[in-house]
Write a protein that binds this DNA or RNA. Structure first.
Length: 325
DNA sequence: CAAGCCAAGCCAAGCACGGT
DNA sequence: ACCGTGCTTGGCTTGGCTTG
């Protein structure tokens, strides 16, 4: 038996049997007591909480709260974990690309050479397509202060780039939720500058630090701002049944209520994805009719007028020529 | 005070490994 | 095959602590 195996065995035995003397351990592992003393010494140096009792009735005990991870993974489990890691990699958690590679490497190293190659091959055949935006890149260690803020319940000070104004603003921010959506990472919370709930894209944060003060503002029940892109709204649509069968699993139609009226599907859905509903209405005018809410109908009408006005007198190629000139 | 136990130092043997 | 080196282990010893 190897030294490391014996030392692990000592930990397991002490966890199972409460107290054992050096002689009992020596007999169990068929080594001398001197070797057991050396093992105990080595484990203590590794901060394993072994308690020794001298004198009659003495022996060794291990702190009952000590936890030793002893996971043996099967091939199938390793493949599952590699798949989960690959999916996780697609989420592009900021600053963690190196950790994915390291973790995948560690998992693959559990397998013998031949199986390691096979596992790599299997994983190369699996693909996830979940990115809808490509983040510009994240500031170094952008995630660390956010997690620290959740941990300490403190605020954040961040410099945020506004692409529409091409400016950078500094704000104080009480984070509520870190969120992955639309292929990118967002942080939701209370903006002390605007005094309302705001959402910031992590890849637009240029610098971020923790404001190390206790009792910062944390309120999960903040009202949504009026202009929020992801404001929840209830939409009513009339749909062609064939189209509905294709799109009914889309995320923005989750929890939709439907009923059949005159060979059409009447759909009521509450969702924050206004853009998706808008796209659906504009892309399938012959198969989708928006019914409610009124302000949404107005937006659709206005969009239609703008579009038809813009493209009325345009022939193929003329718009490109116009833009070049 | 004796018995039982842990702690630690010293020395030697055995073994694996790399270099010649 | 031989040798040197480093690591592991066992045996012996001394000392300290606790308990009955």
């Amino acid at each position: 038996m190897k030294k490391t195996e014996r030392q692990n065995g000592i930990i397991h035995l002490l966890r199972m049997r409460k107290k054992m003397t050096a002689k009992e351990l020596a007999d169990y592992f068929d080594v001398s007591e001197r070797t057991i003393y050396r093992d105990i010494d080595a484990l203590s140096q590794l901060r394993v909480p072994i308690i020794s009792y001298e004198g009659l009735g003495g022996g060794y005990e291990i702190d009952s709260s000590y936890f030793m991870p002893s996971i043996k993974l099967s091939e199938q489990e390793i493949l599952m974990l590699l798949m989960v890691l690959k999916a996780g990699e697609e989420f592009r958690i900021p600053n963690m690309a190196a950790d994915y590679n390291l973790l995948s490497g560690k998992l693959l190293n559990v397998l013998p050479d031949e199986e390691r190659q096979k596992a790599s091959q299997v994983i190369s055949h699996i693909n996830f397509d979940i990115l809808r935006i490509i983040p510009m890149g994240y500031a170094e260690d952008v995630l660390k202060p956010i997690l620290e803020a959740f941990w300490k319940s403190c605020d954040l000070q961040l410099s945020y780039y506004h692409p529409e104004r091409n400016t950078t603003e500094t704000r104080r921010f009480s984070p509520i939720e870190l969120q992955f959506g639309d292929g990118g990472w967002y942080i939701n919370g209370y903006c002390h500058l605007r005094k309302e709930k705001r959402t910031f894209r992590l890849d637009r944060i240029e610098s971020i630090t923790c404001v190390d003060e206790k009792n910062c503002f944390i309120n999960r029940e903040l009202p949504e701002p009026e202009h929020d892109k992801f404001r929840w709204n209830t939409y009513e649509l009339m749909l062609d049944p064939a189209l509905y069968r294709i799109i009914r699993d889309d995320v923005y139609l989750q929890n939709a209520m439907t009923r059949s009226i005159d060979n059409k599907i009447h759909l009521t859905v509450r969702t924050p994805y206004k853009d998706e509903i808008c796209k659906l209405v504009l892309c399938h005018p012959e198969k989708v009719t928006a019914l409610k809410p009124e302000e949404f109908l107005e937006e659709i009408k206005q969009l239609s007028v703008t579009l038809s006005g813009k493209y009325q007198n345009i022939t193929p190629g003329s718009l490109a020529d116009e833009e070049i000139n």
